[in-house]
Design a binder for these strands. Structure first.
Length: 561
RNA sequence: GUCCCGGUAGCUCAGCUGGAUAGAGCAACGGACUUCUAAUCCGUAGGUCGGGGGUUCGAAUCCCUCCCGGGACGCCA
């Protein structure tokens, strides 16, 4: 189910290879194996529809000038059965192919036929991938970093699915360990404060004011019956209640953001099942653990890391890292061929030892892929919004969605590469003007829908691409748009291969732009029935592709604006 | 000090597994609404791709080095 662009590239690569082999056979070139070469789409329109660097790559092995070799190739290439109309040799030795004017039109019936599936490819071949993202501590609310991770992870998962991978979305709930201890102490302090006791929130605790709310809810339910209870018991009850509330809030917040997980994985289960102990034992047996100052250390340096890392503290409690090793081992045990984690850049020190630990338990370090995202800078009124989790001052995901809407938020978070610091301008995201790329794209879709509403009002009807003379679409704005539609499967492939959903955002923006140009230069519904039908097919196809691409990034395609 | 990410138009960023004359959006300037939505379009202008060296037929892209900005270097997560 690959697109026509890729089909033609593959076909050309094939005939080019045969041309070289034939030339060798006839003694026009010395004995050689055909080198790696590419059939690419030139940046310049004047360089044809496709071009190859084959002759340049042959220069060394064939010991001949590239342009001379290009001539030999062109003389030997068998183009019958291809859509090639003209071949040129240009520049230092590129071979340029010009296709028949209608080669690109085939994509329109293809889009009609495949509908929601158009653009999907099969490069994944059913390989099982897990994408774990957000996994924020259930001790608080989701902040902008989590939001970026949510948009990125969900979109990446969608892209991979569309590319033929079998994908699972997972959230890891850190509901155990040290931070839960602190969480309990913080809740306890807030609880006692509500009951008029003068107890400060611990220095290393959670100072967010949302905990006050949580504790109030707890008191509504249980009144002050834990005021005099055993502190351990009191904290346990508070933690259980609060975790439940927080996780539900996180779930709902993500749901409003269009993110739905296949699995919520609890860290507690790793402690309870003994998986952590077992994993440490396995590491020990493999010789990657040693003791120092009463603590157990993992030999991360054996796997290229800078220093070793504690897995069990001197007090006998395993570290977060130990749980993480057990957790990631568990992922691979579940049969995933590839595991992708999306982390904030502040976790980068964790990457190498995590990968190393997977090697230490018998998996490949390369099967664990970690995408690090850079920070989000929030701007309002041209000024940076300061965010501090410790003081509890930050904009939450829910607040963001309420302020700018799900669509704008999701688009803004994925429109930049994860490597780039994201500048999120709240005013821009809210603005309903041409500055805002989300509206620009959605407007293109709304316009298309409007055309079909108009058509219906006039009593006209849609015609199938198969019954239309598509060769009537020859104007530049028309063919540019069709060419872009044909690129969609290529974009999906690229986005999946490089794990880069921002490519889809960029593609959408370009596609919308080409549609707007077309729309402004041509009326779709015109007197000439044939012409009208052809343009309606084009408009409809554009609508399909816009919807498919928007779906991948979780942005809606409104019919009216 | 070591490691990671970035440095491309006034601003925000694509392009980076090497290809031909480096792109987009916004901002600026000049045009287009009796028309299927002007939330749009058309045009103009804007560049030492951080600096320097190297590899090659060819470098924004790969290698080395330096400079600048951000981040990470805990028996925290």
């Amino acid at each position: 189910m690959s697109g026509i662009v890729e089909k033609n590239q593959q076909q050309l690569a094939q005939v080019l290879k045969q041309a070289v082999e034939k030339a060798v056979e006839q003694g026009e070139m010395p004995q050689l194996t055909v080198p790696e070469f590419v059939v690419e789409v030139p940046r310049e329109k004047g360089h044809g529809d496709f071009a190859t660097n084959l002759a340049l790559m042959l220069a060394k092995p064939a010991k001949n000038a590239p342009r001379k070799l290009a001539e030999i190739i062109v003389n030997n290439v068998q183009l019958a059965g291809t859509e090639v109309e003209k071949v040129d040799i240009a520049g230092p030795g590129f071979i340029n192919f010009y296709m028949t004017p209608n080669w690109i039109h085939q994509v329109l019936p293809q889009i009609e036929e495949q509908g929601k599936q158009y653009g999907s490819v099969e490069i994944g071949e059913g390989v099982k991938i897990q994408v774990e993202f957000v996994s924020a501590n259930p001790t608080g609310l989701l902040h902008m970093g989590n939001a970026r991770g949510a948009a990125l992870g969900d979109s990446l998962a969608s892209v991979l699915e569309f590319a033929g991978y079998e994908v699972q979305r997972e959230y890891y709930i850190n509901d155990a360990g040290n931070q839960i201890e602190n969480f309990g102490k913080s809740l306890e302090a807030r609880y006692l404060q509500q009951l008029d006791q003068d107890v400060p929130v611990p220095e290393e605790g959670y100072h967010g004011e949302d905990l006050i709310e949580t504790v109030k809810n707890f008191i509504d339910k249980h009144s002050d019956k834990y005021l005099t209870a055993d502190p351990t018991k009191r904290r346990e009850e508070l933690v259980e209640y609060a975790l439940n509330e927080k996780i539900n809030k996180i779930k709902n917040g993500l749901l409003d953001f269009g993110v739905v997980y296949d699995n919520w994985f609890s860290e507690q289960t790793l402690h309870q099942s003994g998986a952590i102990e077992e994993t440490i034992k396995e590491l020990q047996q493999n010789g990657y653990i040693y003791e120092n100052e009463d603590a157990l250390w993992f030999k991360a340096t054996k796997f290229g890391d800078e220093k070793d890392e504690v897995v069990v503290r001197s007090n006998g409690i395993p570290t977060y890292f130990a749980a993480d090793i057990a957790y990631h081992k568990n992922k691979f045990d579940r049969g995933f061929d590839k595991v992708i984690n999306i982390w904030g850049a502040d976790h980068h020190g964790h990457v190498n030892r995590m990968k190393g630990s997977m090697e230490a338990v018998g998996y490949s370090r390369d099967s664990l892929e970690i995408i690090l995202m850079q920070l989000v800078r929030l701007l309002r009124g041209g000024e940076m919004v300061r965010m501090s989790k410790r003081t509890g001052q930050f904009v939450t995901l829910s607040e963001l969605v309420e302020e700018v809407g799900k669509d704008a938020a999701r688009y803004f978070f994925i429109m930049r590469s994860p490597d780039s610091h994201l500048e999120f301008d709240l005013d821009l995201a809210k603005s309903q003007t041409n500055e805002n790329p989300v509206f620009y794209i959605q407007y293109a879709h709304a316009r298309i829908c409007s055309i079909f509403r108009q058509l219906e009002e006039q009593g006209g009807k849609k015609v199938s691409a198969k019954d239309v003379d598509l060769s009537l679409l020859q104007d530049e704005q028309e063919t540019d748009l069709i060419r872009k539609l044909a690129d969609f499967p290529v974009e999906v492939t690229m986005a999946a291969n490089t794990m880069a959903p921002h490519r889809i955002a960029k593609y959408l923006h370009e596609l919308a732009g080409l549609f707007h140009s077309f729309y402004n230069s041509h009326r779709v519904i015109v007197e000439d029935q044939q012409q009208s039908a052809a343009r309606l097919v084009l408009a409809h196809s554009t609508g399909v592709v816009l919807r498919n691409a928007l779906r991948l990034i979780g942005v809606s395609a409104p019919e009216k604006m």
